[in-house]
Design a protein around this nucleic acid. Sequence first.
DNA 1: ATCTTTTGCGTGCACGTGCACATTTACACT
DNA 2: AGTGTAAATGTGCACGTGCACGCAAAAGAT
Lengths: 357, 357
Amino acid sequence: MAKTDKINNSTTQATIFDVARLCNVSRGTVDRVIHNRGRVSQETVEKVKRAIEILGYSPNLNASILASKKTYTFACLIPEFEHGEYWEKIHEGFIAGANSLYNYNIEVDFHFYDQTSPESYLTCCNKILDSKPHGVIMNTVFREETIHFASQLDEVGIPFAFVDDKFDGLNYTVYYGMDPYKSGRLGAFLLTNHFNPDQLLLVRLIRDTNHKADPNAKRRQGFLDYINLKFPQCKIHTVFINPADHQQIYVTLKDFFQEHPEVKHLIMINSRIFLIDEYLRENPDTKRIVVGFDDIEPNLASLRSGHIEFLVTRHISSQSQLALSTFAECVIRGVKPQKRDNYLHMDILHRLNMDDY
Amino acid sequence: MAKTDKINNSTTQATIFDVARLCNVSRGTVDRVIHNRGRVSQETVEKVKRAIEILGYSPNLNASILASKKTYTFACLIPEFEHGEYWEKIHEGFIAGANSLYNYNIEVDFHFYDQTSPESYLTCCNKILDSKPHGVIMNTVFREETIHFASQLDEVGIPFAFVDDKFDGLNYTVYYGMDPYKSGRLGAFLLTNHFNPDQLLLVRLIRDTNHKADPNAKRRQGFLDYINLKFPQCKIHTVFINPADHQQIYVTLKDFFQEHPEVKHLIMINSRIFLIDEYLRENPDTKRIVVGFDDIEPNLASLRSGHIEFLVTRHISSQSQLALSTFAECVIRGVKPQKRDNYLHMDILHRLNMDDY
DNA sequence: ATCTTTTGCGTGCACGTGCACATTTACACT
DNA sequence: AGTGTAAATGTGCACGTGCACGCAAAAGAT
């Protein structure tokens, strides 16, 4: 009883002086070894490296930053967005990440492209290449273009990271996102847990069909696999809505439910479940189970008002915040991340637990 | 299209020299004002403060830490624990918090007391008072003793923080935890969402009854209120189990379900739902909905193996990690936290979303 | 053998702050 | 005016590192 224990991180760390003394060389030489600046004999390099090992030396970050006048530049490549959209949260996360790096001298440049225009994407890529940043953070809206851009970055030796989604096989330093396949499965579970469905409605965006990347394909697959496995008899209806046309959305849903009043389960795989809020609000006659994805503001509002039962998400902004801060640390300190692929925990959001989100 | 935007935190910040120059005084004087070390005329104090305001000066943390030889000591007061217990996670969080403060010279002292012995708690409190730390982090296992200790700390001007639970009305700097009442409601929702119960079983620990603090009273209240409101007809059975006696647990549950085979809903308000895992494993005949709390290892194992349907929790270790890092920053930099009461978001954990937790 | 270049290494200053100590100023009392 | 004392202010060094510069010795050129 009444035991005691201590952590002490102020135990005098070895300094560059200690290393120098142990090798009978000067600070300058040790410094050159540490930063691979050359102008040191091979023999001495090894001597110093051994000494660093022995003493467990690592540079004092405070002194290092204080002495260094170097400013690191990072480029963030993301789609333009309107208020309330998914990418707004990603943007917020980047800003938070930049703030958490206040110790360092950092510049973060945002490059916004038009999601419907590969040309605007290429323009951004070229601007970034010209500006020669110390690192680039990007996503996967354009497949071929991104793969090509990645190879260009590799050529000139600029490291890069992925947020939200990634392309395997590329040389990215780190990735932060949510497992799309698993999120689809979880959505399916939440949709069907309350009572088992004979039929359900999957709402899709019109542009998903001609969008060559189809960013939500994996998530949809996870959803479909779960339903087909667990409820093989379940019929899945699909309707397409146009995000830009409220009238069309309303009419489409109205028509569908007139024809299929027995359908009680409703899900949307992309981040825009809020688009059907208007219909649900004005047709409260039937209690339906509605599941959506991503914690953007309009979705949270729908959840709060009770039109949506569950939202599957993770802090969207955490993805970009962690990506930037982790990536920047790795680049600045010249190390690898502990974990390259970082899947954030999937949160289940319900009216009862959304308060402190 | 292809717009651009920048964040730059390396814009040359005002230094203590700039402030001194603007006031026609020396660095030393400004320094004394900043640290409230006295020995400065009232007139000058105001002049300096105004200049700081105007220039938006704030000390360079890197330089400050580098120059300061001061080591800050924090005392963590927590119960002793066995492997797999709730407080082990809290302990891990403190260690993580200490590590994240590697910039500072910090010493974290742990004081472990016996949860069943107020005397051991008092011994710890006195040790802490003797060691005169810069801050104390504690919890609410012992009510009266903690309130008294808090007043002693106030007397000698040592700030303190609460983790896990708190006592309102005390002068704590910051608190991190999960809203107990809301967590009880959420547990009730998850328990009854799948299908509506006529009866359910609430499992309690024997020691809860004679434990004077009853740490889970608020959570239980949240649970009961939800059930009574939503299912007024629902009968709530209660059994008591002895955490130290596996035999007793098994027999108690066996007997109960022999008598009430129709009960399909099962919840435990404290963190030890894993205690009934053995019974569930060996009696898989009936599919039951089981809900528990807190993401300790044994509970996660039960969730993984499918005996438990849901776990209501938040990262237990995040509570203590954030509490320590936030508290320490406040103490060291002499500021108030942005938010005093920090309720962590309640996570709903299910087999399908526990992987990346 | 002398001069030039390259290689290897040491030194000094700067970064912005904390803190101990030195110095000046103000003021009261003889 | 002179002395003593306390209050107010200034100064110097240290913290550990990055980096530009300089210098000596070795290697190469003539």
